[in-house]
Design a protein around this nucleic acid. Structure first.
Lengths: 244, 244
DNA sequence: CGACAACTTGACGGGCGTCAACCGGAGTGG
DNA sequence: CCACTCCGGTTGACGCCCGTCAAGTTGTCG
């Protein structure tokens, strides 16, 4: 069990984006005990139905939350990136109701539940930050219900791209001018309720009308305003002080 | 500002289903100051973009959370019933990111944020209950993303019915043998990402194969096992001690 | 008994799924 | 250095599920 304060920086940064974090609270975060993990791509961090004594925090790389339907098809319900809390929820709901799987190689921290619990008890600011994070996640899920429920294929993908690049920007992983999309077109399909074939058609369409330019998975938004319009993207649901 | 302990019973019951509630905490709930409201059908309780000084609790009747897409179509992302907390979230996120609208006449309690805040500070059990409630709601949203993203029309509707009757049962509003569906077929469509016409076709289909029987909006599930199978419904995501 | 909302039913069309083939790049091994 | 493999991406043909449009029917409330 390590306690390398540097490693948890992305997590502390995330908390600081959520609330005004007193120095003592930040020190508390830095003092958390945890176990570092380097995991490959496509590895499960949380499995539906399982319990765990540790909470997982994503420090580097990308992951996604997903569930499988009875017939085996997969639905992704959010993407996780640097600093995101993977499964704080199991402090209150021990058995996981969905899967979390990496989509790239990733670095994670495993923090004992007891440690996090103690931290929230000591620092109301951290408790507030976790509250906000939970509520924001719920807000994002609601937007995703709207996205897959009521928008056509092109809009769904445009919306997903808008959200993704907005969140990447927040953690310094690019900007509309230049960002890397780590997921495959199949994963984009699983996130938007489409088939990989149709994702391909729509990406191509967005490229052809000139709103985005692609080189492999390196993207560039040529017309940010138009992409948002096509995707019916209004960033308020992210409740981000930056994206506003 | 009233303080009628009887009126908040449905709310206290809900909390008690979530955690083991000490007597002192229950007394704290009963002592909450609040304003009672009787509202008609189709009234907004929360409006996207607005703030409020009070938190709303639903005491009687039904409501739904929904968002509107740019082209004006509506997506419902959850139904609320007796005891449900309508907008605790605005304690941490002042401006609402979605709408809450009644779908029947309803009785609600408006509780000042400060009152609720104080209550959670005094009673950790209540704080824990609200945490669990928030996390469970998020879990339900995830299931809905899966529902509209990956299941066909018939399964979506079957799933929605399963969830609805399960939750109704929990609060004593019926059972699979006999329950009332307060929403119109258009609202069912808005919840499942379908058109009212197709909802009608699918309800008819479910009726014809004999899994449900309808008399107006009074439903009876004739084959509960089969309805769950058709809807790919596994209740774990509700994290209910009862429905397990 | 008129008005209106919700429900019902049928005909038709389109967006997206399905199937299938091919391409291109990265990794592997000879 | 090249052949082989594999995964992801690309493209086309075809068909179905569900949306759309439209016309009725039912039920409820004045």
């Amino acid at each position: 069990m390590l306690s390398d304060s540097e490693a948890l920086k992305p997590f502390a940064n995330k908390l600081r984006r959520l609330v005004d974090l007193p120095e003592a609270a930040e020190a508390g975060v830095q003092g958390l005990k945890f176990r570092l993990g380097n995991v490959g791509s496509s590895r499960y961090l949380v499995r539906e139905g399982q319990e765990s004594a540790d909470c997982c925090v994503l420090l580097e790389g990308f992951a996604c939350r997903h569930k499988l339907s009875g017939d085996g098809s997969r639905q992704i319900m959010s993407f996780l990136m640097k600093g995101d809390i993977v499964d704080f929820q199991q402090i209150f709901l021990p058995v996981a109701d969905h899967n979390v799987q990496t989509i790239t190689e990733a670095k994670v921290a495993w923090v004992p539940k007891t440690e996090l619990n103690e931290l929230t008890r000591q620092f109301p600011a951290i408790s507030a930050a976790l509250w906000k994070d939970c509520l924001i996640e719920a807000s994002v899920f609601r937007e995703w219900v709207l996205n897959v429920g009521r928008r056509d294929a092109r809009a769904r993908i445009a919306h997903m791209l808008c959200e993704f690049v907005t969140r990447c920007s927040e953690v310094g992983l690019g900007s509309p001018d230049q960002f890397h999309v780590p997921m495959t077109q199949e994963q984009i399909g699983d996130a938007t309720g489409l088939t990989p074939v149709h994702v391909n058609r729509m990406l191509r369409a967005l490229d052809e009308i000139g709103v985005i330019k692609r080189a492999g998975r390196d993207f560039r938004v040529s017309d940010w305003r138009l992409l948002q319009k096509i995707g019916d993207f209004r960033s308020e649901y992210l409740h981000s002080p930056i994206a506003a």
